[in-house]
Write a protein that binds this DNA or RNA. Structure first.
Lengths: 204, 204, 204, 204
DNA sequence: AATGAATGAGTGTTCATTCAT
DNA sequence: CATGAATGAACACTCATTCAT
């Protein structure tokens, strides 16, 4: 590819990103259904028609914004499973690391998570289903951990319910946290969550 | 008021109720934004125009459906405060009663809670704010309890965070429960939740 | 069906007809692609949205207008075939009757035929194909007659070509006739056409 | 003009031609209204903006394509008039020559004629009027011949109608011929047309 | 009260044309 | 000349609300 072409590719990608960022912020502010294409393009300092040079529809932008959130949510759990391989329970600092990871992710993707958790279910049935599926998949991962812990002697409990508690907590608490401008401090939040959920799950 | 008048009042109220029930079921199914007035009136076996004899707008029906949910959510907590008056910590069965109460409420108002928790934030900014306010108020009530418990020697913790965990759990878990057709059994759910949240909150 | 219902059915059908007539006249005047929905509804003295209570799209009105033209075009030929059954050639007055029939049809459906012959091919590929198919089917009917005549001793000729001459003539001449406000007189037109095409086809 | 300048002029004219050819083929395929500027430039292996260095609008390309068709259609008739000057009726081979000429013209300008006859009336009122004017002028030329033939003792007939039959036939039959990939053979087509129209027009 | 036709403002998307590079 | 991103007017269709019957 020529140098000129490579450059224009980059510019195009940047423009596309600008659209995504603009759309993200308007969606978060007004909600998908009450966002006008013009709102997005105005915020991106361009014209209505131009958006359609980068995306084929309003929904496509939304999809792009949401895509990746599923992987993002599951990603942090992988690290915990390492311990199980060595026949050990994840130590407390590993759990702390888990929640610290989520704090960072939610902070970095603030608007995306707000849209995902607060709005997505209300846009239409398709997105409601999608949202619930993502949450369910996340819960399944948690459940696997709970089941492992039970094998290691955790307090007897229905793993489905406990997993759902963890999921609800992570989503609910972190969404609240970003909504309230990252108050309380990250460290305090992480410590409290670790303590609460560990005690809820384990005997000791 | 004459007997005849009273009777017609009752009929009118019944008709109004029919509209509300119809709207509720369509809203839950299609979401507010994708519900057409005709969908509601068809389900109520009447005509589009007639709905406007009972409600002044589509939003008004929605408001009626949602109204009361705030009180409903706080209601169950009052009972716990009785113990604090006698300088006692609420015993485990009282907490269980609390959760059993919520199970019943969510079961009875299944559609309403699904709309409230999954959809309401996505309709428009006004309802997003309303939704978050209701959740915040609920959390404030929980926080009061946590603070009381701390006075009684509970494990040191940030009451705001713990309260948020309780809220997220109640909303998240019960919403999941009604979405999955009341599986697991109510008793098991209540027992597990009680155990999990008590241990998370208390030292013993 | 109740009397009231029957009445409203009739009114509805009349309204629908009004839309069709309005659309027909605007289409003929401006062409399908340059006709705005508002042009049609204005001519029907109603509002844009109301049109969609009767038709599901702009195309649907067009289809309704065009539908039936195929049958209409073939219809007149059936009468000629009667003679062949009795082993006779259609006499000259029968052919005259044929053309008189077309004169009447084109007169009655003036706008429809103008749209069909002058415009339909330019709307889009779908309608171009449809138009050509209708013309081809019409030609096939004519061809059957030519073949019959050949059996009866008509001048040797390629029936496909002769049929195409007949088709082109009927469509071209009658379209011109309605475009020029039915000048010349119907009788003269019919006589001349009969003479011309008979001589072109037959030996005698 | 310098040599260099002359050369670039030629290149420019070639590029312009390429655009015309590309446009012609897309117009024929998709129709004017459903052709996008991008379709044309893609087929010409160049960019959208570049087209506007050669033409000032989409309509202009269309005009260029259609221009000349009027002269082309009348051109062939001149030859017949030579005979009248010598007080002779055109012999049969002269008429054949006429039709052979049209066969060649339609073959050479296949797409243009298809657009002209099938589509042009449907693009907009302006082009419909133009199309009809060209057809009417063509008919006027034919009429002149018919009148001459009447002077020479042709079968009594309304020359306007006969002329319209000729026009319809030429346009209709040759358009069909190019649409069906030049089937039947040119010679057979020409012979049949000559026979048909001669007999229809003349006594003998 | 009940009906459903009528209203018309509102919105996503298209596309000929322009223009900076 | 060449490129293709940028522009924005235009349009089909939707749907909450009104209103005549």
């Amino acid at each position: 590819m020529s140098l000129r072409k490579k450059k224009s590719e980059i510019i195009k990608k940047e423009k596309r990103n600008l659209f995504i960022i603009s759309a993200l912020s308007v969606f978060e502010e007004k909600g998908f259904n009450n966002t006008r294409i013009k709102d997005i393009t105005k915020r991106a300092n361009t014209s209505v028609g131009n958006l359609y040079n980068y995306f084929k529809s309003k929904e496509e932008i939304f999809e792009v914004i949401i895509s990746g959130i599923a992987e993002l949510m599951i990603s942090k759990f992988k690290e915990l499973f390492v311990y199980f391989k060595d026949n050990k329970i994840p130590p407390i600092y590993a759990v702390k690391n888990l929640f610290r990871g989520y704090a960072r992710i939610f902070k970095a993707k603030k608007e995306t998570f707000l849209i995902f958790f607060e709005q997505m279910g209300g846009i239409n049935t398709k997105y409601r289903a999608k949202r619930n599926k993502i949450i369910d998949n996340f819960t399944k991962e948690v459940e696997k951990i709970i089941i492992k812990l039970l094998e290691f002697g955790a307090r007897p409990q229905n793993p489905k319910i406990s997993a759902r508690v963890w999921t609800s907590t992570v989503l609910g608490v972190f969404t609240w946290w970003i909504r309230s401008d990252f108050e309380p401090e990250e460290e305090e939040l992480v410590n409290n969550l670790t303590a609460f959920l560990s005690r809820g799950t384990m005997t000791k």
